[in-house]
Amino acid sequence: MMIRLGSWLMNIRATTIHIFVNRAKVSSSGSDKMEQEVIEAEIVLPTHLSFKKVQMYEKYPKGQSRGRHWKHLKQIIQAENYQNYPPDEPNYVNIESPPSMHPCKRICDITGFEAPYVDPRTNLRYANTDMFKFIRSLPNEYVQRYLALRNAAVVLK
């Protein structure tokens, strides 16, 4: 009944306050249908929280571009325009470590032992003949997954 009344109110251009009251009621009626166990554990975040000045449903109204696009780290860094600042000023990009100076450790992709050999067909590193037999018997999907572990898989774009 409350729900119907509320939506009717909405239809006749009720004030925003009315809508919020209505929404809060809807959510509480929804929780009535929840299992007792779930309610007791309180694992579901309430939609209305008294300590907030702006509620979630006001900020991100239902149905309105739910998955709002947030800038990814790459975009954030680009937007920061670090190139415009003096290079000796520390920033997120220039504090990154340089490439390692140590010789690259080559380990068998399958076993983790030291790997003196590389299979030219699959590009997998291997430790001994047994492993060579094993990698030759591997289906291509697995070869690619092993290669992906060290970011060396063939990526088709």
Partner: peptide, 19 residues
């Protein structure tokens, strides 16, 4: 210590101290 093992070309923890 060897981020190279997972294809990340950066210094490991010990080298980072040196850097």
């Amino acid at each position: 210590f060897n981020p190279n093992l997972i294809g990340i070309d950066q210094a490991g923890l010990d080298e980072m101290v040196g850097v």
